[in-house]
Structures are given as structure tokens and as C-alpha cells.
């Protein structure tokens, strides 16, 4: 049994975007604050801190999860992926990101990272979701700018492209 005492920092070892990562966290430190302010990965945003808005959604062991409802200590030994992992290389966009850009599926971009991570998880598990599936899956995200329609379109396009129905060159950022 390991008891991590309050008020002290304890090591957290996990995989972040495919690479081993070690940080230190007090037991009460939220995964959002840990990723953003300890590790320096600020792409994951904080919108409500009570698990409703979805802005902080990251992938934990392949499933989308609210980083604000997760303690840093809970991801010890886990595989965490964030929006910073989505681009194939600097200056290029992945299929999903490119579809968002083509479809004007973002405006302020604050909620976008969470939505991308949910869709990334969805498309890994269900290569050809229909619109109803996508809408249901994204109902756990709040976007205040777009009215959602372009997001749904982008997701459908990305799914089609990933399934090989359409082929596009990797899009330059």
C-alpha cells in the first residue's frame, strides 16, 4: 500500500503522448493543473472544473476522460494523450485537425482540444460512426461559438478519410 501524504509532492510516472514522463504532484493536484502548470502542456484547457464542459478532455489509456475530474496521482502508470499528440509533425496537421480547419469547426478554439481528443478516441474504436453516434458522443462537450454543425461535418469528413473513402495529402498547417 502506498499512502501519499497531503501537503507533500510525490512522483507521478506515466506515459504522455507516447513518451515516458515524470512529474511531482500533491495528492490533491488535478490532472488539468498537473499537465498545464507542472508539465507545461497548456493545450488541455480548463472550462468548468466540475466535469460538464469537456474542455479538459484527454485520453487516458485510450478512453476520453475529464482531466478536471482526475487526480494527477490517479494516472500514475497510465498512458495519457493530449491534443499536443495529434499533429504528425510540427507544422502539419492530422486528418481530424485538417478537417476541423477546412470546415471552420472552431472559432475561439478554447473547447477544441477536448472535442478533438474525444473524436480521436471515438474514431480509433469506431472507424465509421454515423452522425447520430457523433452527436451522442460529443454531447459531453460544450462549444459556445460554432453551433456544432461544422464540428459534426468535420468529424464525418475525417471519419470518411480515415476509412479510405477519400484521400487527401497530409495537410500543411
Amino acid at each position: 500500500m502506498s499512502r501519499l501524504q497531503a501537503g507533500r509532492r510525490h512522483p507521478v510516472r506515466f506515459s504522455l503522448n507516447g513518451k515516458p514522463c515524470t512529474g511531482e504532484a500533491e495528492p490533491r493536484l488535478l490532472l488539468t493543473d498537473f499537465l498545464r502548470h507542472q508539465i507545461g502542456m497548456t493545450g488541455t484547457h480548463v472550462g468548468c472544473e466540475h466535469g460538464v464542459c469537456g474542455a479538459c478532455t484527454v485520453s487516458i489509456d485510450g478512453s476520453p476522460a475529464r482531466a478536471c475530474l482526475t487526480l494527477a496521482a490517479q494516472v500514475d502508470g497510465c498512458e495519457v494523450r493530449t491534443v499536443e499528440s495529434l499533429a504528425p509533425s510540427a507544422g502539419r496537421l492530422g486528418i481530424l485537425q485538417a478537417a476541423f480547419k477546412r470546415n471552420h469547426a472552431l472559432q475561439c478554439g478554447f473547447c477544441t482540444a477536448g472535442i478533438l481528443m474525444s473524436l480521436d478516441c471515438l474514431l480509433r474504436d469506431h472507424p465509421r460512426p454515423d452522425e447520430a453516434t457523433i452527436r451522442d458522443f460529443l454531447s459531453g462537450h460544450l462549444c459556445r461559438c460554432t453551433g456544432y454543425a461544422p464540428i459534426i461535418r468535420a468529424a464525418l469528413e475525417a471519419a470518411a478519410e480515415m476509412a479510405g473513402d477519400v484521400s487527401r495529402e497530409t495537410t500543411h498547417a
Binding site: V83, L86, A87, L93, G109, T112, L116
Partner: peptide
């Protein structure tokens, strides 16, 4: 604006 916003 999009490339940076989409990449975190």
C-alpha cells in the same frame, strides 16, 4: 488562427 489552436 486555426493551426495553433488545433495543435494545443
Amino acid at each position: 488562427e486555426d493551426a495553433s489552436l488545433l495543435s494545443g
